[in-house]
Design a binder for these strands. Structure first.
Lengths: 198, 198, 198, 198
DNA sequence: AATGAATGAGCCTTCATTCAT
DNA sequence: GATGAATGAAGGCTCATTCAT
């Protein structure tokens, strides 16, 4: 029962990601989500309070898992360079493997609607914090000279985000993964990263 | 008459920028634009084919002027560092002085709606091209080592865009202008900018 | 089993009375009845054909019992004054002790929906008939001068009903019982009731 | 323009009265009102905030006018008997000439929905007050012995209301007007009305 | 018998667009 | 050109009823 229920919750969430990716949150009728999920329109309201809540859950469930995963990967690495590489690679590989979710993120990450904004902010701020931690650690380990971690984070996340947007909007895009090393080179230069000498 | 027409055209455009900034393109009724512009709803359809066209004109008129202006400023500078400083400063000062337009840009720059997308792309690609030219020139003048201008542009525009988004969404933001020099330092490091020796 | 069945039937009926009293028949979801009765929604459809049928049964069961009871009480009295007093007292005391049922009656007694109307009419017409019999007997016994029993019944029932409505809608009502004697005085005057001389 | 606007407001109000009379407020789709009024569904929302507001306006506009009219008629009469006759005759003749409004009144006068309730109460309490004033004056002029005007009003209004309900629900009703004198006789008896001696 | 998840018809309301004035 | 009343299509959401378990 519960498994079935869980199954339907996820099916609707997946369908909503595809549906929102198709046309954006406001342009997408709930009936389209139902159609893609293979359930009746009313069924969606058994699992979600309203349409807004579906979008909110997308960020809370999927982005939350992504960040938890990334935190785990980062804890296995020691150097700032390895940390940065992990961030760029995981970010790009996750987006590349979840194209619809990537599209929804690019479309809806910038919501003025306060309720949705609030819900997105949770995972997003955690992601920002995680990037800033990496930079801060680099400074403490003297791999990175004194820098404003906040501005550095804007550069790193902004670059990842812009690359993803380009990839999402391009018809025949380069793979995102092909941008990992060039971008890392830029980040290392920007942060004046020294190789750590033991 | 033509002047009057222009006057009303611009009044509607300014009103639409504020209106879209308030609540986003799809959430904003045409009646709100009319209200802010001080004209009747029907009047808007004398100047614009439909609501979509209003958004399109915002990018074509306002972003177009912004880019033309930036191109002029850039032509007065010689070094890559000066070029980059001009881009960052103009980008931030323009956004800071046109907060509503900044909001609309952040909200609507990532539209999946194909018609709108197409229209945004014009000015945006020109802006991208302009940034890439600066980098290309830097490479040719040997101020910048061999780099992929496309990836470098993603980093530069992505950073500017992300900083603007942060500023737009923050309640009590730092001024954008205060981020000019820190960001420039990062860009110079990323591009391994050498001071040109004559 | 039959006892259990009866038990659940009555539990649903009681729950429905409270539920309909809360928000009115059309405003009340079947789920609310189920919730108050402590049964599943589907269970209700084992005991009642549909939602309408629940309302119909309320009148048939509860109002039916009320009228049967009143008929019994009346048969123990001799004079028209005693009959009238019995009607007023039983009407008010029953309503006062079954506030939710009183509310449902006041709300739904006037239904245009023909099927419900039809079902309410059964008990109601019997009640009307009972009142008219009392008047008719009064005339035959020469306690009451020639009167139209139909109009007199309208006055009596209308007064009782209006008093009940006032009581139901008032926030801090007088007790209904406190209106028994004043109302009786009015009725006696209206019917020009003579004390029966043997 | 304004005349036209007024015309459409009234046309919608009249249509709504008929539509609500057909099936009750909650059972009646807004589309039915629009159909009867000969306007588009959306037009209704140019004149009324929502469906609830239409019902509220019915009571405020139509019942308000009825009461104002009755107050005028009463001021032209001197004796309590004449006052009572005016009330009964106007009540019945108004209902008889506005059958749909009468039905709506009988259906919706007893609303538990608090917002609607509130709006109905205004005119209704004014009507109650008017009846109680007539009784109070009768007492002061010594045409009526000491009585509780509140209970007397319950009897009078309750009788009128019940007679109207009977008439509304009957298939082949007696005319309401035929009940004027029988009911008056009852009222006079109930209030022990003396002919005023000069 | 009892459950409650699932269904889908139906309704209120919004809003882009038109057009008579 | 300018107006704004009118239109009607479209969509989010509720809820009576069913049915597999």
């Amino acid at each position: 029962m519960e498994a079935q229920r869980e199954g339907k919750f996820d099916r609707i969430l997946d369908a909503a990601i595809d549906a929102f990716a198709e046309s954006g949150f406001y342009q997408c009728p709930v009936s389209r989500i139902a159609q893609l999920a293979g359930v009746a329109e009313g069924t969606i309201y058994l699992y979600f309070k309203n349409k807004e809540e579906v979008l909110i859950q997308i960020f809370q469930e999927r982005m939350g898992a992504f960040i938890t995963n990334m935190r785990g990967e980062l804890s296995r690495e020691e150097t700032t360079e390895a940390h940065l590489r992990t961030i760029v690679r995981l970010h790009f590989s996750y987006m590349e493997q979840n194209r619809s979710l990537a599209i929804v993120s690019q479309l809806e990450l910038r919501q003025s609607n306060p309720r949705i904004r609030q819900a997105i902010n949770g995972p997003l701020l955690e992601y920002f914090h995680l990037i800033e931690e990496v930079i801060q650690q680099g400074i403490e380990r003297e791999e990175v000279p004194q820098t404003d971690p906040w501005v550095a984070r804007q550069m790193i996340f902004g670059s990842l985000d812009e690359a993803t947007t380009d990839w999402v909007l391009a018809r025949n895009p380069r793979t995102l993964m092909s941008a990992v090393e060039p971008l890392l080179t830029l980040f290392k230069g920007a942060l004046r990263l020294k190789n750590r000498t033991i």
